[in-house]
Each structure stands twice: as C-alpha cells, then as structure tokens.
Design a protein around this nucleic acid. Structure first.
Lengths: 112, 112
DNA sequence: TATATTAATCGTAAAATTACGATAAGAAAT
DNA sequence: ATTTCTTATCGTAATTTTACGATTAATATA
C-alpha cells in the first residue's frame, strides 16, 4: 500500500476495500471459485489447477486468509481450505450496500 | 502487479478481478460513494472531501477511469466525473455471479 | 529409521501502488 | 495580455505485490 492513509477513511469503506482488494486478482478469484465448486475443501489441488508455482499459490491463500475470506484446517500432511461463510456474507452485505448506492439513480441523478 | 501471469486466467476471472481491484482502496470506495450521493457529477470537490492531495485524488480517478467505472467530461476549466452505469452494471453481474457461486452451499458442500 | 509428500516460509527480483510536491496545460476572469 | 483556477502529469520515495526457486517443518509411508 505504501505510505498509507487508509486510517483517514470510514471503517466501512476500509473493510469494503479490504475485501474487494483480497479478490482483486484473477488467481484469487479462481481460488475462491474452486473452493466453491469442489464439494471438498480442496487443499494443494489448487496448485495443480492453477498455472502458478506452489509458493505463489500459498501466498495468495495467505492473502485470502488474512482478509478472512477463507480458512485453512490442517489435515495430516496437508491443509484443507474452505470459504469462510461469515466473511463471504459480510462481503455480500458490503457489496450490496455499495451497489445499491451506485445504482439507485434518482430521477434528477442523470448521467453526465 | 509485477511479472504478471494474468493472461493465464479466464477472461471473466480477469475482468472480475479488474473491477474489484479498482475498488480495492478506501479512497476509491469513497470516491464512487461521493459520485453516487451527489446529485451532480462533482469534479474537484472530491479533493476537498477526501483527506488526500489533489494529485493523489487525480491518480485514483485515473484508476477508476481505466477500469471503466467512472467517466470524466471536461466542463470548462474543470472536469465532471460520474459513474459509468454500464460498468457498474457489469460489476453487479460479475459480483452476483461470484457471490451466487460462493454462497450456493449444497447439502454435501459443508464447511471444513 | 529413512524417505517421500505437502505446504509454509525465506530470499530475491521486478514491477506496481500509494502518496506527495512541483510543474504544466487548459480555460475563465480581470 | 495577464492572472487565476482547475486538473493532469512528472518526478520521486517508500512500500507492497506478484512471482519464483530453495529451503524448512510436519506428517505419512516404506
């Protein structure tokens, strides 16, 4: 982020941005899609599905975990990831609120 | 992005990520909220509303413009920005598709 | 016990992001 | 014609992001 002024914004704006940023990379979109599609929580299969190195995937997983969007559970030698329903729900709320605002075009509120 | 492998992902994933990334900063969330709230398209009033330097705001506006989320129209000495309804609609579609996928938890698809 | 498997972390490099002040470029007003 | 206002761009610095290979740590398996 570099020389961030993040704290000067509203908590909601910060949290919205945080969640959107976490999904702001095609690899991370692909990961959450994978986690949603697979019945199991999948783990390092992600590495085989995506065209990225194992360490890179691990980094992306960390980013998603830091944002709270996924959680990982150790299962023997491997780690099982799954979506965090709570945070996904929060994302839903935040994004719906935002889209409501962006799309509630009152009669006077015309386009440029 | 650095050494990007973006092109190895699906177009939809790329576009979703692109739009989410554009809104992945509190200042840019604040900007689109401002544009939605104000009846007018506002221009450099944004600079007065947000705790950032004029050049920084200009940069954020550029990011939003590059993603297609806003458009700017020159109006005399100032520039009038407004939301781009088409792209906001596309964002709506993409995010709803994604959230549908993330939240459609079938009976077998339990949490970890 | 030795060896494989799995995933996180470390070190590194290249590029992008965030932020600012200073400057430039445009139009408007004096 | 000059000055003022507004916004974009340039240059710069600090930090973060993306990506990789190599290594480590932990668990299984032979």
């Amino acid at each position: 982020m570099a020389v961030t002024k993040e704290n000067l914004f509203k908590d909601k704006q910060k949290q919205t941005a945080r969640l959107l940023k976490a999904l702001g990379h095609p690899a991370r979109v692909a990961i959450v899609e994978l986690l949603a599609e697979r019945q199991s929580c999948v783990c390092g299969d992600i590495t085989k599905e995506l065209p990225l190195a194992q360490s890179t995937i691990s980094q992306h997983l960390k980013a998603l975990k830091n944002a709270g969007i996924i959680k990982g559970e150790v299962d023997g030698p491997r780690v099982c990831y799954c979506l965090n329903k709570e945070t996904v729900g929060e994302l839903d709320e935040r994004i719906c609120e935002l889209l409501d605002l962006l799309q509630n075009t009152t009669p006077e509120n015309k386009s440029c």
